[in-house]
Amino acid sequence: MTHLTEEELILHYYSEADGGPVERHLDACPECRAAYGSLERVLNVMDALPVPERGEGYETAVWRRLRGAGLRPALWRRPLVRWPAAALVLASALVGVVLIHRPAPPPLQSAGVQKRILDFAVGDYLDRSQIVLAELANASPAGTLDISVDQELAGDLLAECRLYHQTALRTGDNAVAGVLDELERVLVEISHAPSRLAPAQVEELQQRLRSQGVLFRIRNLGSTVRTQAEHKS
């Protein structure tokens, strides 16, 4: 009699295989039945491993933490993640600086690569900006709104915006430069607003965001640069 393989027993345990022939074999073969019983016991022990219970209101706490994190990745704070990420930001900034300060850009073979890096960086940047603006555009104007976290993010985004804006001007990418110019003005406005907005101020800010259509343009441009970058890769 050919015995069942360990793989067959595992697939049977997880009901991933046709159970009929395996069942029949197990009925007829004490050796395989013993092996299967042993496998079941091991996997049942794994089942008995508890997961700590989360209390009531856990979902709300997760949401608060997400808001409190200002949409910054928690793993960012980990040293092994932070340093490569910082290196990536630095590399993007260096590309920007090189493009800005080059007196007369000679036709380099790597120009396409630089453009692709820039497209990726701008795409990522626009995603992050969009999140902050969307949060404000969709905030409930029912009560006083604390936008201090959004302001801190807007301040960070502003410095990057200026860098990418100058780079886009330098490389003659007028579509990107135009949107970044608008975005810069909005970010300045958010950074300099009071950190707590009354309902009327929230509505006023949201009205301006809507009338300028900046969110729509950021979304469109983000999608365009990402597509460009992916096509070039």
């Binding site: 933490r65 997400l66 994190a69 910054r72 990745p73 928690a74 999140i131």
Partner: peptide, 9 residues
């Protein structure tokens, strides 16, 4: 937290 942040983006 990281999962939801990535998902949002």
């Amino acid at each position: 937290q990281e999962t939801f942040l990535r998902a949002y983006r």
